[in-house]
């Protein structure tokens, strides 16, 4: 007997390859989305700082824009730079 596979439809889930589970700003799961977004994934991406802390892009942008002077990482208080 021989088995011919005509079609194999598999199921997978995606996840952000981050060390943490939740965004340090909005406390929502990375695999979910920030409070302002409706759809996770491409529409609500993560961003890493030079300090290797990850946040929802929208969350950290809001934070950075709200700072008058140089913004700091909300987690480690180092100066915030987007990871290159």
């Amino acid at each position: 007997m021989k088995v011919n596979i005509l079609q194999w439809h598999a199921v997978a889930s995606w996840t952000w390859d981050a060390q943490d589970e939740t965004c340090g700003i909005c406390r929502m799961a990375f695999d979910g989305c920030c409070p302002d977004c409706k759809l996770p994934g491409d529409d609500c991406p993560l961003i890493w700082g030079a300090c290797n802390h990850a946040f929802h892009l929208h969350c950290i942008l809001k934070w950075v824009n709200s700072q008058t002077s140089q913004a700091h990482c909300p987690m480690c208080r180092r100066e915030w730079h987007f990871k290159g």
């Binding site: 011919n4 079609q7 199921v11 889930s13 995606w14």
Partner: peptide, 21 residues
């Protein structure tokens, strides 16, 4: 899609196959 990765749920899905005797 960096930095996203896939986690397979291997037991799920459907397979269409043909047994050839």
């Amino acid at each position: 899609k960096t930095p996203r990765k896939l986690l397979w749920k291997k037991s799920l899905g459907t397979v269409k196959l043909e047994l050839q005797f």
